[in-house]
Simulated assay, not measured.
Amino acid sequence: MGAVRTKGCVGQVDVRGTVAAGWEPVRDAFLNNFVQRGERGAALAVHHDGVAVVDLWAGSRDVDGTEPWTADTAQVVRSATKGVAAVVPLLLHQRGLLDLDAPVALYWPDFKAHGKDRVTVRQLLAHRAGVPVLDRPLTLAEAVDLPTATAAVAAQEPVWEPGTAHGYHAHTFSWLLSGLVHRVTGRTLGRWVADEMADPLGLDLWIGLPDAEAHRVGRLGPVEEVEPPGSGALKLRPKRSVTQAYQDPESLTRRAFGVIDPKPDENDPVYRAAELPGSAGVATARALARFYAATLGPVDGAPRLLDPATLALARTEESAGPDRVLLVGTRFGLGHMLHGPACPLLGPASFGHPGRGGSLGFADPDAGIAFGYVTNGMRKTVTADPRAQALVRAVRAVTP
């Protein structure tokens, strides 16, 4: 199935890239996001059975500018970074270097403070450790200094008994995973990703953006909340919405998303260069899709990342039900979000991670699909952005 070059212009939208025969409806859905949903700049890539079938980009690289998005434009992907970072402990386990059922304190002795001595690696990855907040928020300078930040999360008292519930560790996941990986490998997580995954696979993906690549990264910004009638956008209505909880300074929601104070500017070069695997990764859509394709099997001669047993772990549910931070029912595996009402992916086997405001990366072993979507237009959505969902629906409709 050969890819064909596509160039379509509707109004001011010029869609470029390639799409394989039979996958044209995905290109149409991508275009419709610009026409109907207020998209400003974005890219989409899809692999099927290890072969690239969609590679598209359009709009401006800066949400508030006119310079066109190009084939190598990258963006901050927010929490979609978590899906990449979560493969690191899976690979360490696969290599016999990390026991998922061992206490985190076996590798990181300082973590045992305040009754966290029995928190297992599995619980930490599944957002069950009970430390989504810090008693004192960190400044940006403290947050990007890994010794300072990991010491803070190690010293934090849990806000629920670890293992008894789950809640999204929106920012503290960065330091929990960084602290663990550094103590197991002797390398920072960003360095490990570069050495063991990004460089061997040829990925334009960084957790800690190098200065030499900064010129490729576009500017993020808010876009208008636009949703056409009858689009099927997900609307979760918990008893107390995330928006309402975020307005309450004492809520776990507000505290979890506010552990860096003041809120960092994601266009700040300091933030982009930080090795924050929960929120500050930078990638192209092509890199996200290729990364997830490599979790499923070989890609262009490069060996697969996950063996069958580890791939089964990646898609296995570890947490499900009411989320103490997001206030809706969520499903997590070992660091990845799993398919469900709060995070609709392709199907029951899917695993990956959205980025708050839009971006999304995931794999579906049953369908052989790997998906990467990157945008510069940030909406208020946390896990189910309507633009990403429109693209997922289009992929689902044409997947053989």
Rank of each mutant, 00 (worst) to 15 (best):
H47V: 05
V4M: 14
V54M: 09
P386T: 11
L176H: 13
D72R: 12
A143E: 08
T120E: 04
R290Y: 03
T185A: 07
D364M: 08
H182G: 15
L140I: 09
S251Y: 10
L327W: 07
D28Q: 13
D99A: 13
V153H: 01
T243A: 15
T81I: 06
V382H: 05
R255N: 06
G301W: 02
P269W: 12
L124M: 15
A71W: 09
R379A: 10
L146K: 04
M337W: 01
V223Q: 08
P103D: 05
A154C: 14
A85T: 12
L236A: 14
Y107C: 10
M337Y: 00
G38M: 04
V392S: 07
A233H: 09
V119L: 04
P103V: 09
A285R: 00
P158T: 10
P210T: 13
A289M: 10
L90Q: 01
V13N: 02
L288H: 06
T172Y: 08
P298C: 02
G202H: 04
E157P: 03
K7F: 08
H215R: 12
R27Y: 07
E196A: 12
G358C: 08
A80K: 06
P344A: 07
M337K: 03
A126K: 01
F173G: 02
S350T: 03
D145M: 03
K263R: 14
A384L: 00
A194P: 01
L92R: 05
V282W: 11
R240K: 12
D145W: 01
T172A: 02
D117N: 13
G17S: 11
A165F: 01
A274V: 11
R122N: 13
D268V: 03
S279T: 13
V395Y: 11
R290V: 12
G186D: 08
L305D: 07
G167R: 04
A43S: 15
A283C: 12
T310H: 04
V223R: 04
R191F: 02
V270L: 15
Q75W: 04
A143I: 05
P132L: 01
E142G: 09
G218W: 09
A256R: 06
P348I: 00
M1L: 14
A42G: 07
T243Q: 15
G281Q: 05
A155G: 13
S279R: 00
R290G: 12
V217P: 02
T164P: 03
L138V: 11
A194R: 14
V392C: 00
K263D: 15
F351L: 05
L140M: 06
G221V: 10
V144Q: 00
E318G: 14
G65M: 07
D300I: 04
G190D: 00
A102Y: 11
C9P: 00
D62T: 02
A287P: 13
A302E: 12
P109D: 12
R128G: 00
D195R: 06
K116Q: 11
L90S: 00
V131I: 15
A367I: 09
E196N: 10
L313V: 02
A293F: 08
V382L: 15
G186H: 03
P344R: 06
E161F: 01
T148Q: 14
A129Y: 11
P132F: 02
D385S: 03
R219Y: 03
A21C: 06
A42I: 02
F362D: 08
R254Q: 14
K235R: 15
A152E: 05
W160D: 02
D28L: 00
